[in-house]
Simulated assay, not measured.
Amino acid sequence: MSTNSVQQLLTKLYRNSLIFQGVLPRPLGSVKGKIATFQPGHWTDGFWPAMLLLGYSYGKDPVLWDEFQRYVPMLAERVADDPEINQMKGYLALDHDVGFIFHLTCVYKDLLEPDEESQAIGLKAAESLLSRYNEAGAFLKAWNDWEGDTPESRLDKQGKMIIDSLINVPLLFWAFHRTGKVEFQRAAERHVETVQKYIVRHDGSTYHTYNFDPLSGEPLGGRTGQGYDHESCWSRGQAWALYGFALAYRYTRRKDFLDTAIKCADYWVTSLLPSGDAPWDFNAPRNERLPIDSSAMSIAACGMLELWKFTGEQRFQDMAIADLNRLQAAHLAPAFPQAEAFLLHGTVGPAYQRGSEEERMFNYVHANQSLIYGDYFYFEALLRLHNPDVLLPWDF
Rank of each mutant, 00 (worst) to 15 (best):
L290K: 04
T37D: 01
S295E: 05
S5Y: 00
D266C: 02
Q317N: 07
V195H: 08
D156K: 15
R178N: 08
V6S: 08
L172G: 05
V63I: 04
D281A: 12
E306I: 00
D145P: 01
F212L: 09
I101T: 09
E288A: 14
P49D: 09
E340Q: 15
T270D: 08
G244Y: 04
Y14T: 10
Y108M: 10
M74N: 03
H177Y: 14
Q226S: 13
F396T: 02
D213K: 11
L247D: 02
L9S: 09
S356G: 09
A126E: 06
T311H: 10
D115K: 00
L305P: 08
P40F: 01
S205Y: 02
T3G: 06
S235K: 03
A142K: 06
W65M: 14
R384F: 01
R154E: 05
A320W: 12
H366R: 14
M88H: 08
L140S: 06
G312M: 02
D229R: 10
L344K: 14
L123D: 04
Q21C: 04
A341G: 11
H366N: 13
V31M: 07
L54Y: 09
A284C: 10
W43R: 00
I35N: 04
V200N: 02
Y133L: 11
S153H: 10
P49G: 11
G22L: 07
L129I: 02
Q353C: 07
R326L: 02
D266H: 12
K263W: 02
L155T: 10
S216K: 14
F139L: 10
D81T: 11
M88S: 15
G276S: 08
V79T: 01
R253V: 09
P73G: 07
L305G: 03
R190C: 03
A241E: 03
V348A: 12
L391G: 00
V79K: 06
V269P: 00
